[in-house]
Deep mutational scan, measured.
Amino acid sequence: MASQGTKRSYEQMETDGERQNATEIRASVGKMIGGIGRFYIQMCTELKLSDYEGRLIQNSLTIERMVLSAFDERRNKYLEEHPSAGKDPKKTGGPIYRRVNGKWMRELILYDKEEIRRIWRQANNGDDATAGLTHMMIWHSNLNDATYQRTRALVRTGMDPRMCSLMQGSTLPRRSGAAGAAVKGVGTMVMELVRMIKRGINDRNFWRGENGRKTRIAYERMCNILKGKFQTAAQKAMMDQVRESRNPGNAEFEDLTFLARSALILRGSVAHKSCLPACVYGPAVASGYDFEREGYSLVGIDPFRLLQNSQVYSLIRPNENPAHKSQLVWMACHSAAFEDLRVLSFIKGTKVLPRGKLSTRGVQIASNENMETMESSTLELRSRYWAIRTRSGGNTNQQRASAGQISIQPTFSVQRNLPFDRTTIMAAFNGNTEGRTSDMRTEIIRMMESARPEDVSFQGRGVFELSDEKAASPIVPSFDMSNEGSYFFGDNAEEYDN
Rank of each mutant, 00 (worst) to 15 (best):
E454F: 13
A278F: 13
N125R: 05
A182C: 15
C279T: 08
V280H: 01
T92Y: 04
I425S: 10
D491L: 04
R99F: 09
F304R: 00
K273V: 02
E380H: 01
N368P: 12
R293M: 13
E107M: 10
M222L: 09
R446W: 09
N395K: 08
S467W: 05
E18I: 14
G485C: 14
R55D: 10
P318V: 07
N205C: 10
F346I: 13
M196A: 01
E294Q: 14
K77T: 12
L307P: 08
G158E: 08
Q311V: 15
V414N: 01
Y148L: 02
R452Q: 08
T424N: 12
T350M: 14
L61D: 02
C164S: 12
E115L: 01
R216L: 04
G282K: 04
S165V: 02
R65Y: 02
T396V: 11
C223R: 13
R75K: 12
Y97M: 02
T134M: 00
F291D: 11
G180E: 02
L143H: 07
E192S: 03
K227C: 03
V414A: 08
A234Q: 03
G435M: 15
D127F: 12
A234K: 07
D51C: 09
N142M: 02
V299H: 04
R162Q: 07
S438H: 07
N417A: 05
I475H: 13
D72I: 03
E252N: 10
Y78W: 08
S274C: 09
L307T: 11
M32F: 14
G200W: 11
G362F: 04
D455V: 11
A403G: 10
R305T: 15
H135P: 00
H324D: 11
M137H: 13
M447Y: 04
R221C: 06
R452T: 15
K77C: 04
V194G: 08
G268M: 07
V280R: 00
D16I: 05
R317C: 03
D128Y: 13
Q122L: 14
N76M: 04
V100H: 03
S326N: 13
Q415S: 09
R452G: 12
N309W: 14
S50K: 00
T6A: 11
C275N: 05
T442I: 15
Q459M: 08
E465G: 13
R38Q: 10
E115D: 15
R204Q: 12
I365T: 13
F420A: 08
G404F: 00
V29M: 11
A260H: 01
E469V: 11
K113V: 02
N202M: 07
H272C: 06
R106D: 06
S60M: 04
A337G: 11
M105A: 14
A401D: 02
R436Y: 02
S297W: 07
R213E: 04
R65G: 13
I201D: 00
L68P: 04
E469P: 02
T423S: 13
M239G: 04
L172D: 02
T215R: 09
S28K: 01
L298C: 09
A70M: 06
L307Q: 00
T157D: 01
G187L: 00
D290K: 03
D16R: 00
I96R: 02
L143A: 09
A332F: 00
R422Y: 15
E380A: 05
V67N: 09
Y111G: 03
G34P: 05
E454M: 10
N321V: 10
I36S: 08
F230G: 04
S482A: 04
A260Y: 01
T45M: 13
S383K: 05
V155N: 05
E14R: 02
Y219P: 01
S60G: 13
F39Q: 01
A153D: 10
R118V: 15
K325A: 02
G17E: 07
P477D: 03
H334V: 06
N247C: 08
G212P: 01
S287H: 07
A278Y: 02
K87P: 00
V155P: 01
S3I: 00
E192H: 03
L133D: 03
I109Q: 04
R461Y: 03
T147D: 01
M43F: 14
I388A: 05
M189K: 11
V29A: 08
I116L: 15
M167S: 09
G102Y: 08
V183L: 15
A471R: 02
M43G: 01
A403D: 08
E254N: 07
P474Y: 06
G126P: 00
T171I: 10
Y97G: 00
R261M: 10
Y487K: 02
R106P: 01
P277L: 08
V270D: 04
F253S: 13
N125F: 09
T232F: 12
R38G: 14
E11H: 07
E73W: 06
I388V: 12
A2Y: 01
F230S: 09
T23C: 01
N144L: 14
L353T: 01
K91C: 02
T171G: 04
P354H: 04
Q405T: 01
